[in-house]
Simulated assay, not measured.
Amino acid sequence: MTAFPRKPALLLALVVLTDLATGPACAQSTVAEGEKLAFDRGKGNCLTCHVIKGGDLPGTIGPELKDLKARYPDRNDLVAILTDETKRNPQTMMPPFGRNRILTEREINAIVDFLQTL
């Protein structure tokens, strides 16, 4: 009966090791997903208002999206902007993607992962 308590510990160790092994690959896939969403004219639609390196036919209503990791070292600031910028700036033209359920929390986080690479 002493072997039974070890099974959950072994399972936990396997989960942690699997998570460590897939971490960078998972991060790369969320960056790629975020880029796809940001450039998607029907979903994130960031190019309607922003210049983004690699994007076609950008708008100029919003600021150019570059050096965002330096400008927003706390990724939560970018999450908040995408979720509902009207909380910080009621006069903003930025759509409240999270509040209006245009983007899911997972999609917002993927876009932020991508934006932090710019």
Rank of each mutant, 00 (worst) to 15 (best):
Q28G: 07
Q28N: 10
S29F: 14
S29H: 13
T30W: 06
T30Q: 12
V31A: 10
V31P: 11
V31Y: 12
A32H: 07
A32K: 15
A32I: 06
A32E: 09
A32F: 01
E33G: 06
E33M: 06
E33D: 11
G34K: 05
G34D: 03
G34S: 07
E35Q: 15
E35I: 03
E35N: 10
K36F: 00
K36W: 00
K36S: 09
L37N: 14
L37T: 14
L37Y: 14
L37Q: 09
A38V: 03
A38T: 03
A38R: 10
A38N: 03
A38P: 07
A38I: 07
F39V: 00
F39M: 15
F39R: 02
F39G: 02
F39E: 00
D40P: 06
D40W: 03
D40L: 13
D40E: 10
D40I: 12
D40G: 08
D40S: 13
R41I: 09
R41H: 08
R41A: 08
R41E: 05
R41Q: 05
G42S: 10
G42Y: 09
G42L: 11
G42Q: 11
K43H: 11
K43I: 09
K43V: 08
G44Y: 13
N45A: 10
N45V: 02
N45D: 14
C46G: 04
C46K: 02
C46W: 04
C46I: 01
C46H: 06
T48R: 14
C49F: 05
C49M: 03
H50I: 04
V51D: 09
V51E: 10
V51Q: 09
I52D: 05
I52R: 06
I52M: 14
I52F: 08
I52P: 01
K53N: 11
K53Q: 13
G54K: 06
G54H: 05
G55C: 12
L57P: 00
L57A: 09
P58H: 12
P58F: 07
P58E: 12
P58N: 07
G59T: 05
G59S: 06
G59Q: 02
T60C: 00
T60E: 07
T60P: 00
I61K: 15
I61N: 08
I61P: 02
I61L: 15
I61E: 13
G62E: 00
G62S: 04
G62I: 04
P63K: 15
P63I: 15
E64L: 12
E64T: 15
L65C: 02
L65I: 04
K66T: 08
K66N: 12
D67E: 13
D67Q: 11
L68E: 03
L68G: 01
K69N: 06
K69C: 00
K69M: 01
K69G: 02
A70F: 04
A70E: 15
A70V: 03
R71D: 07
R71T: 08
R71Q: 11
Y72Q: 06
Y72C: 03
P73F: 02
P73G: 07
P73D: 12
P73H: 10
P73Q: 11
D74K: 15
D74I: 00
D74Y: 01
D74V: 00
D74E: 14
R75F: 09
R75P: 08
R75Q: 14
N76D: 12
N76H: 12
N76M: 13
D77P: 00
D77H: 03
D77M: 03
D77Q: 15
L78W: 01
L78D: 00
V79E: 05
V79M: 11
V79L: 11
V79F: 11
V79A: 02
A80M: 08
